[in-house]
Design a protein around this nucleic acid. Structure first.
Lengths: 145, 145
DNA sequence: ATGGATGCAAAAGTTTTGCAAAGAA
DNA sequence: TTCTTTGCAAAACTTTTGCATCCAT
């Protein structure tokens, strides 16, 4: 996924925050590394480009960009956290416990379910991101062998 | 929830594992502490009863008992892991991001959804436990105020 | 120039591991 | 007796924090 640097910069500046080279590098890294990027992977990537960029800055930027809804947190198998670009439309993941691979799930498949939870349990499901864990075709096939 | 000590002991011994006082204490603790028990909470609890029981033993026992399907892992808000007794019937949780409270969801409400994932995406959702995050009635009400 | 952001280093928190000793079967 | 499990301590990891400095605006 790509991102609109100009638009994001404007959004941040309008809110009184600053667009620093570090934040841009970190955002580019998440963008470039894909779907479910761990803080450590981001650090490895940006640190090669900017050796003084510290882990603290990576963690702070990931939190910050998530708060600004530019990134979204993704729950991986084993309770680990990762990040990805937050699209305008929420989407969800089927996470394979064996290979850690992700399948994207359009938001529509969850809508009915969420409404049911609301009605039956008076609970507002956070639809910004949901992960389901399990096993993908490939891993099931190799397990059967 | 309570547990059948005799039955569990037999199961473990039949598989060649040992039933130690530590494992019994840890299992009792999870049982007693309820629905979503963190390793640290287990440690605090058992350590008061058996001061030499170490954190390492708690972690090892939790992993072990989960592998034996006597406990189940529960994903909490913020990516933290917790444990609970694994009932014969899988069940699921609505986890409130504000108060960390849990609502139990019967397995039946997920069955249709899982079957759809299987059919549409060829992905076998692990139905042993699923967590949905969001906000419960109480927290929504207080947020509105 | 101002105040938000960074870098460093240290601390805090969590989970894992090696190995000798203990103890369940 | 045998072999799993424990306890301790140390290590490995992950994430957070204080504070002086830097720099985007």
């Amino acid at each position: 996924m790509s991102h609109d640097t100009t638009e994001i910069s404007r959004q941040l500046r309008n809110s009184g925050y600053r667009v620093t080279p570090q934040r841009q590098l970190i955002l580019d890294a998440v963008c470039h590394l894909g779907d479910h990027v761990t803080p450590e992977a981001v650090y490895d990537h940006v640190h090669r480009i900017a050796p003084t960029l510290s882990r603290a800055t990576v963690y702070r930027a990931l939190h910050f960009l998530t708060e600004q809804r530019i990134l979204a947190m993704v729950y991986m198998a084993g309770g680990r956290l990762a990040y990805e670009m937050a699209g305008p439309e929420p989407h969800h993941h089927l996470v394979c416990r064996s290979c850690d691979g992700l399948l994207e799930l359009p938001h529509s498949v969850l809508l009915a379910f969420c409404r049911a939870m609301e009605a039956q349990y008076d609970f507002e499901v956070d639809v910004s991101h949901v992960s389901f864990f399990g096993h993908c075709t490939d891993c099931r096939d190799s397990a059967e062998a």
